[in-house]
Structure formats: C-alpha cells, structure tokens
Nucleic acid binder design. Structure first.
Length: 291
DNA sequence: ACCGCACCCTGAGCGC
DNA sequence: TGCGCTCAGGGTGCGG
C-alpha cells in the first residue's frame, strides 16, 4: 500500500526517466473508475508534451508538463508505477507466477491491469502504471487550474509539526489514528506509518485525538517525520504489491515494529501486539508501551 | 464540523 | 479440484 515514502521513492526514480523527455504515445485500458480524465482526452492532452518536473504532494504525484498543464497520479492501494524492463514477481499475478519456469525471464509485459503506458521519445524505457484494484487515479489538470483532490490536502507529512497536530486535534473526538489518516490534516500518512508513528510516540491508537497534550503532539510529529524519512531511506515498504520503479523491493517492511505483527511479542517490552479494526482499517499497537 | 460507515475493485487464501 | 466466502485498504460521499 503506497504511502508517502513509497510515493517519494517512486518519484525519485521515475523522475530520472520522465523529466526532459517528450511523450511520443499514450496507451490506456478502457474508460473506468480509474480514469478521472477519460482515456481519449488523456491521449489528446499528453501526446507531444514534455515533462518539466515530477513533484509529490502527500501520496499524489504531479507531472508538470511544458504547457503548464499537469498530470495527477495516485497509486491507490495496489498501484505500481515502473519502468519498462523492471522485473519483479510482484508485477505478476500468482497464476502467472505459477506457470513461470525458474529460468524464464521475469521481464514485465503490459497486461490487463496496465492502465496507462507512456511511450517516450528517444532511447530509454516507457513508463507503466499498473493497478489491479483500480483504486489508483489519473487526472489531467489544465494550465492554471487546480484539482479538488489537491485543494483538500493538508501540509505534507514530512513537515509535520507538533503545533499543527495540536491545533488540528482540538475538536476531534475521533481516535488519533483516524485523524492521522485524514489527508486534510496531514498529507501522506497511511495505515502502516500511522501505526508505526503512534508506537514510536508511545500513544495508543484509540485515544481520542483531542486528549493529546501539546508535548505529545510534538513527540508524535517527530515520530511521523522520523518513520517516513527512515522508510524513504530504506526504499519504502514492500508488503503486498509495492515495488520500486526498477523492480526492486523496498526494505522497510522488516523494520515495522507493530504493523502486521498482531499476536507477536512487542520488540520493546515483550507483551503481545494487539490487532484491532479502527475505521475499517487494521490497527496494531502494544498494550503496554502505548497508553 | 465531525463521525462512522458503505462503497469502489480484484486476487489471495481459506473452508467445505 | 473447485466453488463461494472473506479480507485487504487508498479515498469519497453519505446520513446522523
């Protein structure tokens, strides 16, 4: 599940491929929920454009094009943005993995889930956007225009501050974990890093947000920044589908202290990590360390 | 303004 | 072997 670190790692790698090159051709699947801008219009808008910059806001990627229009990308839950030539088992369904002989090349060929292909001018790989569950999104934004999804976002979570968290949580009775997942408060934190940051800050996920004291907001903000930065450094978390644009796995999944460790012992105190469901999201915390 | 829930989607993994 | 069920969770949008 791509959150800020995975999107940032993706941005850094795709940037090298995309920036400065013009789009020669655009291939898409049929119109669907996935395309905010219909595929046909997307092709018309993008072909011939050159990418000037690849930016990130929260979990969104924004390709700034040479006519000042922008291409908005969101990886959703299972989105994979990668370079043609990447090879990873994560890019294949289990059915295809099963039929693969050990010596066979893993080089990815576009399949039914590859919803957007950008063919670039000159030498160098195409860029593929694959998304099995289609929770990802693609939208074209006209020059000078904005997009409602971007306008709703709070500040990027890498710049999380205690003051911001304190202000944002004053009238929120919801569990602090739910507030961290609210992208209008802080953009970029998802289920994994919310659990990890709350563990580091020793704050129980279910605690009503408004009950956090100023110093706890400071601690939590620092934990969020730290967890996100460390994950970026390790190449993100490859838990189910996430794969780096070059096909390699991230390394942060092995550093998770609570996420995905329900029933296992806490690495700090040894008591059993609890798994509950909060706001339809699996939530993991240590009953002794987090209060 | 805020909260909690249903919903969008598809493949994996399970029990029978 | 194979069906049908449940689960996973990004985000939006609804009713209370």
């Amino acid at each position: 599940m791509p959150e800020l670190p995975e999107v940032e790692v993706t941005r850094r790698q795709i940037e090298k491929i995309l920036v400065g090159r013009s789009i020669r051709a655009v291939e898409t699947t049929a119109p669907s929920y996935f395309f905010i801008t219909p595929p046909r219009e997307l092709r018309e808008r993008l072909v011939g454009r050159r990418t000037r910059e690849l930016a990130r806001i929260g979990k969104y990627l924004l390709a700034v094009l040479d006519d000042d229009s922008r291409l908005l990308l969101h990886l959703g839950m299972t989105g994979q943005l990668f370079a043609a030539g990447a090879s990873s088992l994560r890019l294949l369904s289990a059915a295809r993995r099963a039929t693969l002989s050990p010596d066979q090349s893993l080089r990815f060929e576009p399949d039914a889930h590859t919803h957007l292909v950008l063919r670039l001018a000159g030498a160098g790989p195409s860029v593929y956007f694959r998304d099995v569950r289609k929770f990802g999104k693609v939208a074209w934004i006209a020059p000078g225009a904005s997009h409602e999804r971007l306008e709703k976002l709070g500040p990027d979570a890498l710049g999380a501050s205690g003051a911001l968290l304190y202000t944002a949580t004053r009238r929120r009775a919801a569990p602090i974990k739910s507030v961290l997942l609210d992208q209008s408060v802080l953009a970029g934190v998802g289920n994994i890093y919310a659990d990890e940051a709350l563990f580091l800050a020793r704050i129980k996920s279910t605690r009503p947000a408004s009950r956090l004291r100023p110093e706890q907001c400071e601690t939590l903000a620092a934990a969020i920044r730290r967890v996100l930065r460390q994950s970026i450094r390790r190449g993100g978390s490859s838990i189910d589908d996430f794969v780096n644009p070059d096909g390699s796995d991230g390394g942060y999944q092995t550093e998770c202290r609570v996420y995905g460790r329900g029933g296992e012992p806490c690495l700090v105190c040894g008591s059993v990590i609890r798994r509950i469901v909060l706001g339809q999201r699996s939530t993991h915390y240590c009953t002794r360390c987090q209060t």
